[in-house]
Computed example of a mutant assay.
Amino acid sequence: MPREDYQQKLIDLRENVLYMSEVVMERLRMGLDALEQKDEDLAWEVIDGDEEVNELYLELEQECIDLLALQQPVAGDLRFIAASFKIITDLERIGDLATNLGEYTLEANHDVFPEVDIQELGTLTLGMIDDAMATYADEDTDGCYDIADRDDQLDAQCERASEIVVRDLIETELENNTEQEVEQLLQDVSRLLLTVRDLERVGDHAVNIAARTLYMAENDDELIY
């Protein structure tokens, strides 16, 4: 492979990874909108769109494999390709979590625990992904540490949200409800806790992206866990 062609393929890989991140973030936004609006059509669009994310992942995986096999890169180029492969894996998993939101929308019948602001948690996670991908695009190592710090804040907010749900469930007078009402409440609680957990996991994937970027740029594995 001529050197010029090889360098262009590295540029293309970075651009394609960034494009995949845009697709995934749009899926997550749609999932959050579907959940807030109880929009089943939008929910199905998110669920059906997971196939596009999976196809992008497979295409980029092959790009990484081809670069490794045909060029046998070393040093910085090797770290870049390896980091890109890890990042697309995190993006694919975020896409799966966005699909979960679509599925939760189909299961939701009414609002429960309005004091838990799912949209705020969603906005935080979207911001973390966007900024994590910016660190990858610009090789901004300072930004990598910022993503890790923000994840601690997200974890704390998710923990508080879960505590609110569990506390309110304990305080609910279940004996005054019918068996069907109790079953519905438990389903709603389970769905909400899963939503909070999934958004927390999105934040973890954003940290993974930042960690791989730091390793790519400086051969520093401090944030990898």
Rank of each mutant, 00 (worst) to 15 (best):
L78W: 11
L56Q: 03
V74T: 11
N54P: 03
Q62T: 15
E59F: 13
Y57T: 10
E61I: 03
E92K: 09
D50A: 06
V53R: 06
E51L: 14
L60P: 02
G49A: 12
D48F: 10
E45H: 12
Q71M: 08
I65C: 09
E59N: 10
R93F: 09
E92S: 05
E92V: 09
R93E: 10
E63V: 14
N54Q: 02
E92L: 01
L68C: 08
I94V: 15
I88M: 05
E92P: 01
V53Y: 05
I87S: 04
F85M: 15
F85E: 14
I81E: 14
V74I: 11
L67C: 09
A75I: 12
G49Q: 07
I65V: 15
K86M: 06
D90T: 08
S84T: 13
A43T: 01
I88K: 01
L78A: 07
E52F: 04
F80H: 11
T89I: 03
N54S: 03
D90F: 10
I87H: 00
P73S: 04
L56M: 11
L58P: 00
A43P: 02
E51G: 10
E45F: 07
I87Y: 02
Q62L: 15
I87N: 04
Q72N: 14
I81P: 11
D50Q: 06
G49M: 02
E55V: 11
L58N: 13
I88E: 06
D48M: 07
S84I: 01
L60A: 02
K86H: 08
D50P: 07
D77A: 10
Q62K: 15
